[in-house]
Design a binder for these strands. Structure first.
Lengths: 335, 335
DNA sequence: ATGAAAGCGCTAACAG
DNA sequence: CTGTTAGCGCTTTCAT
């Protein structure tokens, strides 16, 4: 930096000012400095800057290891968050949280990251408590039971379930099943998406005077198959199913067929918090409500950066609905 | 740190020594320092340490944005690399490379990362050239056409194809198709996995005196369906297919059926560089050769860290085979 | 085995 | 608008 300063005939401080653009510098001086930087191939040292400014411009994305297999949506969080961070001049480090309420401390008081994004949030998430009590700037992708005190971006599960039910009731369906992931006995038992969707479903079904049946699905296609059997046993007259577990989509459809039901003639199926790709891996192609994975990652980072830079302490609460993609798996209810 | 030193009755330098453990300190002093650290809740500042030691202990994982949808295997790279890095006392930052041959410069001369992991490598990858010429310590997940000069970990595609062919020929198959991703016209046209598998297939089929047909599949299930039609048209007597594109698995099977073939009675199907989960989303469950995603991420990081710490300039070349998982989609060739 | 001290490369008051 | 200067918190010779 000193070399650049010498070459431009200015002081090292002035170089710093033009690099950071946070102080007024005459156009002329700026030009000379810029030229000198280019000629010397100067690169601002991120670490020194971080030490002096007490801001690393690094964001940490905390993700759970073990416990819970991450899916396509998680991947989208990673990539979209990293990309958005990059655009805003930040870096995203992946922080594997092996145990719950992990050493977030090391992260922040260690000075590595300026802020944190947490994902896979449960209704009573110890990590959120910890981050709050440590006063770490953070944004959650997902939300706890009472999220009023935190900043978050999340899928609007309540609305998504409503949309799915609107679609199905619009087709005349009155007996509807909901397939959610089986998380009993794991630390993810109160996983937000599952709990919220199930609650929204039960409430809405009651409000609408429908017959609703909730079944849990284990892992993979086999889980879906069992869920189908379970559903048909508990409500043989069911005419529609909403499923929120992509890797069981195929199994559900297959299980419904094994139970003697045609899809969609006898039973309509709609996958929520899903994607076109997941829906296409089934015959017929599934009607889906697509998860806004990329938006969530992007917005989480934007919100965090704003908090970091704007210094605003106010909490942002953003809910995004899933987008409906119509396909062949939903049809009017049988007479 | 000064406070810790005071409390332990030693100098700040001594504290540094015990923190880093790279210099001999008497057991007694060490104990006092450790106690003082705990009592004061001392956390070593990562940034200051990085500035002074000129090593950030940060690794960058460069991933492509746009161009190429990342899949489950990429997710595994992210998480396993991050976890392994963490275990080794490093951090992993996600580096989105928007354009090819991106500003890797900023990364290293900017001083943020000590080393780089590149993924989604093509046979002639400009990023590899750039990293090499900049003398950046890096490890590739994947390899270029001539990888002798670089360190890499990769799937052993040649062996994987051999394994698939061994399995199929063992069942009596002589006319075999290979379905690979259609990448023509994209910057990923010479994507390593595709090019290597296709080449290995052609070579091995010739060597074994079999009839091999290679078809390209577009995106999603529909791509698989078209590939099936294409394959059946080009070799109506084909009795087995190897597919290396998970999101087309379902379409392929479905397309084979649409073409009047039963799976596996008429045509056996085996998915390579796949996973149990992907294989289960089809009826019958697919026989798969599972990609060692987690191992690759882990090994890449280990190799890079060893290079960084051991100072050894020698290149490591690691090839890992896929693991065979037998299921219902492969059967003896029809008479 | 421990301590003193010179930076690492940059930022941010403060002064001019 | 530009320069001076005192650190940021830690590592690392070099002495002792």
């Amino acid at each position: 930096m000193q070399q650049v300063a010498d070459r431009a005939g200015v002081s090292i401080a002035t170089v710093s000012f033009v690099v950071n653009g946070n102080k007024r510098v005459s156009a002329d001086t700026r030009a000379r400095v810029t030229a000198a930087m280019r000629e010397l191939g100067y690169r601002n040292n991120v670490v020194a800057r971080a030490l002096a400014s007490r801001r690393t411009r690094i964001l940490a994305l905390v993700f759970p290891v073990l416990e819970h297999r991450l899916g396509q949506t998680a991947l989208q969080f990673f990539t979209s968050a990293a990309s958005r961070a990059s655009e805003l001049g930040y870096h995203l480090v992946l922080w594997p949280a092996v145990t719950t309420a992990d050493d977030v401390q090391e992260l922040i008081s260690g000075g590595l990251a300026d802020g944190v994004v947490v994902m896979e949030v449960t209704m009573h998430d110890p990590r959120i408590d910890r981050l709050t009590e440590l006063e770490v700037p953070f944004v959650a992708i997902g939300r706890t039971a009472d999220p009023s005190a935190i900043s978050f971006v999340d899928i609007d599960f309540e609305r998504t379930v409503e949309d799915a039910l609107d679609h199905l009731t619009g087709l005349g369906h009155r007996r509807i099943g909901l397939v959610v992931e089986d998380l009993d006995g794991t630390t993810m038992a109160d996983y937000g998406p599952k709990v919220r969707s199930e609650a929204a479903f039960r409430a809405s079904v009651a409000r609408r005077g429908l017959t609703g049946t909730v079944v849990a699905a284990g892992a993979s296609a086999e889980g879906g198959r069992r869920a189908a059997a379970d559903l048909l046993e508990r409500d043989p007259d069911v005419t529609a199913a909403i499923i929120m577990k992509d890797d069981s989509n195929f199994g559900l459809v297959s299980g419904l067929r094994a139970g003697g039901r045609r899809v969609p003639e006898d039973v309509s199926v709609i996958a929520i918090v899903s994607s076109d790709g997941a829906g296409a891996a089934t015959e017929p192609v599934l009607t889906t409500l697509n998860a806004p994975g990329p938006e969530l990652g992007r917005l989480a980072v934007e919100s965090l950066v704003e908090r970091l830079e704007g210094g605003s302490t106010e909490r942002t609460h953003t809910l995004i609905p899933c987008a409906l993609h119509l396909a062949g798996s939903t049809a009017p209810a049988p007479a």
